[in-house]
Nucleic acid binder design. Sequence first.
DNA 1: TCGGATGATGTGAGAACTGA
DNA 2: GTCAGTTCTCACATCATCCG
Length: 605
Amino acid sequence: MGAHEFGWIQNPSNFGKLKRTVQILVRDSPYYTYLLDTGLDYIEDSVQRNALRNGLTRPEIQITYNQMKGKAVFPKNYTGVKDRKHQVAFGLAQLSGGDNKKEKAWTDEWTAEGFLNWALTLHFFEVSEDTDLLSITELGKRFAQQPDGTWKNGKEKTYILSAEEKAFLVPVVMAYPPAVRFLYLLNNVKSDNQDTTVLLSKFKIGHELGFSGEPGFTSFEESEWFEYLHDTPQNKKGDVRSDVEGSADKWARTISRWLIALDLIKSRKLVRVVDGDEEYTPHAYQINGMRGRRALKLAKGFSRHHAIEKYVSWHMLATKVTNKNYVKIRRAYTLKGMQQITKISALSEYLKERGLFDGMGVLQADIQGLIRFGLNIDRDGGNIYFRDSVNNFEVPSVNMTPVLKDAALQKTKNTLLNELTEIDPADIEVIEMSWKKATTRSQNTLEATLFEVKVVEIFKKYFELNGEHLGGQNRPDGAVYYNSTYGIILDTKAYSNGYNIPVDQQREMVDYITDVIDKNQNVTPNRWWEAFPATLLKNNIYYLWVAGGFTGKYLDQLTRTHNQTNMDGGAMTTEVLLRLANKVSSGNLKTTDIPKLMTNKLILS
DNA sequence: TCGGATGATGTGAGAACTGA
DNA sequence: GTCAGTTCTCACATCATCCG
């Protein structure tokens, strides 16, 4: 029984359906009664239907997480195509999250999980990590009992909250840090008009929300989005407006609908002029002066009023990353530590004692993430001031084996810290990242991704290159370039014992090189090579492996790669990467000299 | 559009396999 | 044969855009 995710809600925004979901665990409430009368008839599977009825009618209602969520199930003896529209209802929240007035009265299990997730996130429900059973909280009971609002036009699409529900929900939503973060971002005044608050698109908010940048928190750059929209034919612009969004942008949009329902913000078009033409997105928001600011004040606390106690669970502190439980626990302890410790150096010791310290760069990023998550934290030099109120949440006890610090590695790092005067000390962490022993599939760990991102960042920051971190299936880890002069296909590998370039990974590199040369969309539909400018000639593109160190027959693999593709390239250690970065930064090496180093060998500084 | 809906993608757990 | 380590498989978790 794994830990269930909650804290980030993608689909649901209908408080009426949320209320029905909450009422499932309230005996004799309207929705509870409806389910037992007729609602359960929608569950086709009789075993499941009986189990649900049984659970609902026990002296203590006993419904598990999975019974609430449901799953992808097809009708009995169904042999047709197994797509989602042919799935049938299986879980209770599939009913409460559905639309009774429609022919298909239930929703899919992902949206159902969204409603359950929402109820857990607002602390209306709790889930036992041992038994998987759901229980309702006092807060949930009170929500279930508020006087009902109304369904607009009798359809179960738009729910208009009653005044009582609104008054009840404002402090509840303000206990959810990302909603506070949303209001906080909107509460800034425009630089050119001190009387007007900012109008921010979902993209601007998505960029500043949660653990933006890591998997599960993708966000489009607003200016790039507008340029893309501008380049789209008139009749397709609607599609771009509704379709092109990252998941952090989507999360922002979901939270926006809650805040709109509570009258805390309003939605307005955001217009930007692109190449002389006006373009717009409908997804932009402004704080609702009186109510919105009042709610934010309550959340942050003022004069003798304490801040609203935020409801935080360790589950909320990451979403998609592979070793997410570790990352969540690390961030949970970072948060716990911050509540007692002001000095960042002491906080790093606190984490070290628990085997959770992964370098200053990671700690700084986690603190930034917690701020973007919505907690009121100030930073000032080496100090952190925690100014919020958070429930005393539990963190699962884990046996983190202490990370053994390699003495030689520390020495290298310290040497570099002293020698490389042009390099930001935080970037020296790339050395440690490159030697990290991944505990799970290295390719997909957050550490591996952070390492890839860091290498690309160093190329951009110190070598003045453009480009981006790619990653994922059938894509190299990065593509960087210096206008049309040269480009580099990057493959970065974090290995604890040095990297020997195994043959399958050498073949992958050959595939990437072939992609760049042939640009064949049929072979590689994702067209990752478009990360390079179209004006960059293939003769000026190089391949490059970056790792902590190289071992084994890696030189043979470099030769083979060159012979198979005729492209030049090489292998570079992170130490050399930093030394070269320092040389370029200090003017001792020109960035245009980098291609000269690509001789299909190990690159030396 | 809004409020979800959907096919895709990645993951973990156990089964099957493999080589010392 | 043994058994730890590796690969395969498959249901399921979780998107990341998509869409009626």
